[in-house]
Design a protein around this nucleic acid. Structure first.
Lengths: 192, 192
DNA sequence: GTCTATATGTGGATAGAC
DNA sequence: GTCTATCCACATATAGAC
């Protein structure tokens, strides 16, 4: 086999790892599988990345493009946010691998950061008032509940539901978490 | 060491396994740890339960006592349901172990069954109309989102929040998922 | 500098002695 | 019924070939 540069090999290991971790998760992916996927050997995988967990952390990242949300009126934010989350196909695999690996402290820390940046952040930016932090956390919990039911549990009623209908219905629920049922005030306080 | 009967040893293995799986999860609990906890050896653990995964499935069960929910008026159901879920201390460990082990098809099947029985079931029993199934699934997703944020992600704002306040706030959100913001129907909640 | 071969320790599972 | 000895796959680490 022709030699590659270290960087090229490194990149192929990373690509193979990202694909396998997304498809099979952390536990069901062996360092040997990754090496085979990158047409090299297990020793090199460890040499470049230290441990299997560090390689996992190196590859299991995602961020959504939340720029389309900036201009959305607050009243439509819930539905549009759900739409954006379900739009990106890469998100699912990474999110699942992180949730299922979250018994490891470092992986849970990564999940916390992504939860904060992806779910809490965009919501928090649109709220104000003394309890905005808690309300953003509660709304993020509602958001997390959809991905959890849809991807972790694979609830049949949701998996087989019409995608647009799901976005409309769950978006409306999220909207209530954001602006509350009494929508007569400009920035809307929560119930109570 | 004095001999025990097979049934007694079996029970001690089960107890040790249940405790360790709840505390450390599936991946971080070894068959050797379980054997040591039951003061026996790994071979016997496998002999009695077949595989580590079958032992896990044998021990990781829970059900909530939802009988106090039967008499609750629909308008108060959301808050009371959240209260019941957070009341039982055993639920957390088992739920977490199942979520984190859900990459294994059999463990995911168990999680689905518990999700159905514990989250969807009690809600579904109180709803009617043509779309009751989907609405129950959506409400169950909201419920799952709380346990997910609180226990899997360990969102700081929620973990440190006052327990009663959390129950009141998230219960209100669940209530909206159940009976909706339009309060003109007989079974619906009164306007805030 | 890039990689192969190989060693070490852990963990799930099995065979067979008692 | 219980346990010792052992097997095999795996993550990880190191020595040294090219």
């Amino acid at each position: 086999m022709a030699r590659r540069t270290g960087d090229a090999t490194r990149e192929e290991i990373r690509n193979a790892a990202a694909r396998l971790f997304r498809e099979r998760g952390f536990a069901r992916t062996s360092v040997r599988d990754i090496a085979a996927g990158a047409v090299t050997n297990p020793a090199l995988v460890i040499r470049y990345f230290g441990t299997k967990e560090l390689l996992f952390l190196d590859t299991m990242r995602f961020s959504i493009d939340d720029s389309p949300l900036f201009d959305v009126p607050l009243a439509e934010f819930g539905e549009r946010f759900v739409e954006v989350l379900l739009a990106d196909d890469d998100v699912r695999g990474v999110y699942l691998a992180l949730v299922r690996g979250s018994n490891e402290p470092q992986i849970r820390a990564r999940l916390q950061r992504i939860h904060e940046q992806t779910f809490v952040g965009p919501v928090r930016a649109r709220l104000d008032g003394p309890d905005a932090d808690v309300r953003a956390a509660l709304a993020a919990a509602v958001v997390g509940g959809l991905l959890y039911s849809l991807w972790v549990v694979e609830d049949e009623s949701l998996v087989t539901a019409d995608r647009d209908d799901l976005i409309a219905r769950y978006g409306a629920l999220l909207q209530l978490a954001l602006t509350g049922p009494t929508s007569h005030r400009p920035t809307a306080a929560p119930p109570r």
